[in-house]
Design a protein around this nucleic acid. Structure first.
Lengths: 154, 154
DNA sequence: TTTAATTAGTGGCATATGCCACTTTCGCCG
DNA sequence: CGGCGAAAGTGGCATATGCCACTAATTAAA
């Protein structure tokens, strides 16, 4: 036996990941609080900002997020006038996204707050280490995980 | 020139972590689907299982979760008869938690499904690597992060 | 011991996410 | 061309999480 495992911390990769996400999420949320944005909203605005008037499905894909979940998450941002949608000229199914001027301004404001949190975090764990962790997380996120369900392809 | 670069989306530790959590969460959720439990519920049942009739605040603490959030998350599990509460004999403020026999059975059932997912995951990234990642995540979760902008304590 | 400060939970409100059932469009055939 | 299956979104339902305001019970002060 290795050691007396502390009774409470499971080996579950998922549980560990969620726990860390809750912890870090609160930190970033606190940092962004004065802007009125949550960490997720900031991330979403940023993703739209760096994309080229992306379709909703494109953003959902990039963030590995359910399309309907994206739709829901987008609502408060549209309601508050930070994001607007407009139809694709070629495919009427597609709704493209872009930041409004206010959205752009809000993002700029939030970026300042974000960078403080980011520096704070990297100061604690080290920029190197943080980069490595992000790389590992991206690798995990992009894994092609599939449960060995019955009947793969007949 | 330290500037002139837009912080790539992937530079945000929080966004990267959430993205990975969404991805992995879906995988574990899929694996547990037939049990009717979500990954978070499984984790919560497990935490209660390995603890000794813990108080709600103890569980919330272990999972780095807001106490009220725990209360909400607990509701469906109590409603479905997997968890029950009972008052602490010494401190009437405290509500302790335990699994019901059905909860225990459901956990046993879910553990089988979970281990398949867990093996699947570790088969992809390697058990060593997975353990390292969990350690890194636990370290991040337990960091004492605080924004320096907080009011100076007199 | 009466009171102030703290701790444990609850309930309400708001966002975050997912799945499923539908609807509208497209693109691809036969 | 007409129909069919895939793709993009929407809306509803349910869980996941947090914060805030409030209540009840304890403990530390005065």
């Amino acid at each position: 036996m290795t050691e007396a495992r502390k009774p409470g911390f499971s080996d579950c990769n998922n549980a560990t990941l969620r726990r860390a996400a809750r912890s870090l999420g609160r930190f970033y949320d606190d940092a962004l609080a004065s802007s009125g944005l949550k960490g997720t909203q900031f991330g979403l605005l940023f993703q739209i900002h760096v994309s080229n008037e992306p379709a909703m499905s494109t953003v959902a894909d990039a963030l590995i997020m359910d399309l309907s979940a994206l739709g829901h998450t987008l609502k408060p941002l549209i309601r508050d006038g930070y994001v607007e949608t407009f139809p694709d000229t070629n495919d009427r199914r597609i709704k493209r996204l872009r930041l409004t001027p206010q959205g752009q301004a809000k993002l700029d404001e939030a970026l300042k707050l974000w960078s403080v949190a980011q520096r704070q975090f990297e100061g604690k764990v080290g920029a190197e280490q943080a980069a490595k962790l992000r790389a590992a997380l991206d690798a995990v996120a992009d894994l092609d995980l599939e449960m060995p369900t019955a009947a793969p392809s007949p």
